[in-house]
């Protein structure tokens, strides 16, 4: 018993130390860029040859593809989860879920190759563009990548609502639509939000697939809502440049600064959501 308790406590401490170390490493390594550039880091020009390291285009790109992906994937994913949990014959639920979970595990490079071979061509043809390597293509590809995660987790969230709620609601002569909308969704809300958050984390952090289809140009589109032009995300920038930048240079440090921003965004979103949902009493435990 003692040993297993030690083991569990030890694992927890090791995980905590790793997270802490990541933060410390990122902060230490990004200090050179902050010292050399200060607030010039938040400008639009990125040109290492001239010591310009403006990160705004990359932050914009990361935000844009993530928002597009969530706007597409969350409604579809939630509808699909309602279907698999509440409407689909229970006999079929397990196989459908296994397939979804396999889909969620496909390596991102595969999505990237499909994206570059088909998606970017389709988007180019559909909108009559010069090039299908756009922010929209990346968002679309990400939406497909995070969809299985959203469906399977939302399905779990709904399925975990005890049967008695459904029975009581049905006893009150509510329609199935009303049961889902007014009973199940409010109860499962916290878990559904967790699913969306996890999907958001994957979308923000995805590198390979995005890098192949986004066009990799360090520019905010003109006008900014024009998702049909090429862009750059923090991750695609890192993927393309981190290998070539000399360790210890300001260039390298500026790239690390961007990853620090990415981690900071993810962590603050996670804690914000957790804080927000702590306030509400969960109805199911």
């Amino acid at each position: 018993m003692r040993i297993s308790r030690l083991y569990i406590a030890g694992s927890a401490i090791v995980s905590a130390i790793i997270v802490l170390l990541i933060f410390v490493t990122l902060i230490v390594n990004s200090s050179a860029a902050v010292a050399a550039n200060g607030f010039h880091l938040f400008t639009y020009e990125w040109n290492p040859a001239k010591d310009q390291f403006g990160v705004l285009p990359m932050i914009f790109g990361s935000g844009a593809v993530t928002i597009i992906a969530l706007c597409l994937a969350v409604p579809i994913g939630l509808m699909a989860a309602i279907f698999t949990s509440e409407i689909l014959n229970p006999m079929w639920r397990a196989p459908v879920k296994s397939v979804l979970e396999i889909l969620a595990g496909i390596p991102s490079i595969i999505y990237g190759l499909i994206g570059i071979a088909f998606f970017s061509v389709w988007v180019g043809d559909l909108f009559d563009l010069q090039s299908g390597r756009t922010i929209l293509t990346a968002g679309l590809l990400l939406a497909i990548m995070i969809l299985p995660t959203i469906i399977t987790l939302c399905d779990d969230a709904l399925h975990n609502v005890p049967q008695k709620y459904r029975e009581t609601a049905a006893g009150l002569a509510l329609y199935k639509y009303e049961i889902v909308k007014d009973v199940l969704l409010p109860i499962a809300k916290a878990d559904i939000n967790g699913a969306v958050l996890l999907a958001l984390g994957r979308a923000l952090g995805e590198t390979m697939a995005v890098m192949l289809v986004i066009g990799s140009i360090d520019r905010v589109p003109e006008p900014f809502y024009n998702a049909l032009s090429a862009g750059q995300t923090i991750t695609s920038k890192l993927g393309r440049e981190v290998a070539e930048s000399a360790f210890g240079s300001v260039h390298f440090s500026a790239l690390i600064f961007m990853s620090l921003l990415l981690v900071a965004i993810t962590v603050s979103l996670t804690s914000l959501t957790q804080f927000y949902f702590k306030q509400e009493q969960r109805l199911v435990e």
Partner: peptide, 26 residues
């Protein structure tokens, strides 16, 4: 190290560039 303000895509390897050129008509 000249910058190319007219550029619309930035790609990496010869393969990647070749694919983009073949996929486009202009």
């Amino acid at each position: 190290n000249a910058t190319a303000p007219g550029a619309k895509l930035v790609l990496g390897s010869n393969n990647e560039e070749q694919t983009a050129l073949a996929q486009s008509d202009a």
